[in-house]
Amino acid sequence: MSKGKNPIDRFEKLLTTRWLQILLGCLSIIAFVALWVLASMYLEESGSDKAVFLPGPRTVADAFFDSFESLPGLSDPAIGYRVTMWDLILSSMGRFLSGFFVAFMLAFPLGLLMGSLKTVESLGRPIVEIFRPIPPLAWVPIFVLIFGAFWGPAGIVFLGAFFPILINVIFGVKSVDVTLIDAARTLGAKRSDIFLKVVVPATVPYLMTGVKIGLGVAWMCIVAAEFIGIQGGTGLGYWLSLSSMTYGLYPYTYAAMIMIAILSTLTTGLAGLLEQRFYKWSGMK
């Protein structure tokens, strides 16, 4: 234990553990980019007809930055009308956040109820088990037709996020340490107090796990749901399909994929940050 206190030892520790990790991390990214460059160059040089589908990193980077200036096909330079990546992000985020918000607001309380009340669980379980196995994407055509361009894809996001949150919260409620509840009861806590001050806080880590899983699923959902853009709105999924299938502007397709990765990382990261905050504040970790 004395090792950590000496600055030289600490540096040595950083060098042998963290530094190596950082180095390996960098190496892996460099190797990935190098492989990407080689693969796209190989396809191009060998005259493969698949070459257009794998543009090099440089081309993709150019398309990525160009996307924030103007998206070809959606913009009309002849009359100075511009559509950019920001428009796509706004479109997708609006649907994403709406769907996720509704899922959270319903799944969390419902999970608490189902976890703590046997009657509610007996009522809810069968319904949940009927609908949970249906992949959210299976609902895309119906949802888009019924709920339209905004709430259709948002509804798919809702389905994608709802079940992971619900299931995790139910599990969380059931995992609450019985001794904690007994202790609270011994100290004279009322049922409502036990629920609000013992059960609910103890469920939060499980809730956050559900939220993080739900966020990941929700991003998959929004992209696929926007593929079917029968009516209304753009969005990243719409552009993914349009730029590749219709226009053959593959660098822009990859640029949109990178943007989705960034947004997904941001939202999951934000959830992780909230979780850490909660742990720190509640003294769990």
Partner: peptide
């Protein structure tokens, strides 16, 4: 205290969501 924080968090999330949706429209 915990309850208040939870409510606060929910309200913040709600405002963000509503603002973004409103912004889109």
């Amino acid at each position: 205290m915990q309850k208040k924080l939870m409510i606060l968090a929910v309200i913040v999330v709600a405002i963000v969501v509503i603002a973004s949706v409103a912004a889109v429209f």
